[in-house]
Design a protein around this nucleic acid. Structure first.
Lengths: 123, 123
DNA sequence: TTCTTATTTAAGCAAACGCTTAAATAAGAA
DNA sequence: TTCTTATTTAAGCGTTTGCTTAAATAAGAA
């Protein structure tokens, strides 16, 4: 795809530099976008919020607290698990979910903004 | 919706406590989820990445760097603007976009994880 | 074994998403 | 004014999302 604009001050060098930087960062950015997409859902973010201080919760607990269909909760948990955000541990017939330790430092800051509250503009 | 499970160790008090905590945090969580949903898209996260160190970029620049249709870029910018993540400033016929200053401290940590790179599990 | 419970999975469906194309605005240049 | 450029908007369309219902697993209890 050629340049989309005709700008006199196109600053081709600058554009090229940005392209390079972006190309280098792209894989990391895409990985981050994947977990942000998982967290960028009301229900799932609430799950992460609950898991962050409860260590572990079973499907049932989450369904109760979120007042949602067990099946819907299970499907959200599957996505979180597939994304590596959450881990499952089966005890008897109940399955306990935990935040993946490695991702905990990534998730925590996402929820930090909750306490400091967002600016009205973003709400 | 009644409790969805029959658990003996239901720990009703615990569940109730979680519900309370969640109810208190819900508005904040939903606001955060909204911006995470915006950032949780490959193209938009790349835009934010570029805007984070370029101060300002026009639609055209972004289209060039991301090698995408100007219209598609414009539509992404509209979402970011509606979400308060980005601001527009018109100069002549070109529109420059900037990260909303207030949201900058929220966006920056999202991209911080790029440099420290994610664990293989999350990728 | 049969019965009950906890969870997952499959199917269906309406809504949201993200892109493309084409038309509509807006603003400078001739 | 007309022409060109930068951006936005509208319409269309295929894909994805998130829920519901119902069926399928899995595991303990009787």
């Amino acid at each position: 795809m050629a340049t989309s604009c005709i700008r006199v001050f196109a600053d081709a060098a600058h554009i090229e530099h940005s392209k390079q930087r972006l190309a280098a960062a792209a894989p990391g950015l895409e990985a981050v976008a994947a977990v942000l997409a998982l967290a960028g859902n009301d229900v799932r973010l609430k799950m992460l919020y609950l898991l962050l201080d409860q260590q572990q919760l079973c499907v049932c607990d989450l369904a109760d607290v979120l007042q949602m269909n067990v099946s819907a909760i299970s499907q959200h948990l599957r996505k979180l698990k597939d994304g590596g955000v959450v881990q499952a541990r089966k005890v008897g017939q109940t399955v306990f979910y935990t935040l993946t330790p490695a991702l905990r430092p990534v998730i925590e800051p996402l929820l930090g903004s909750v306490s400091i509250s967002l600016t009205p503009a973003a709400v």
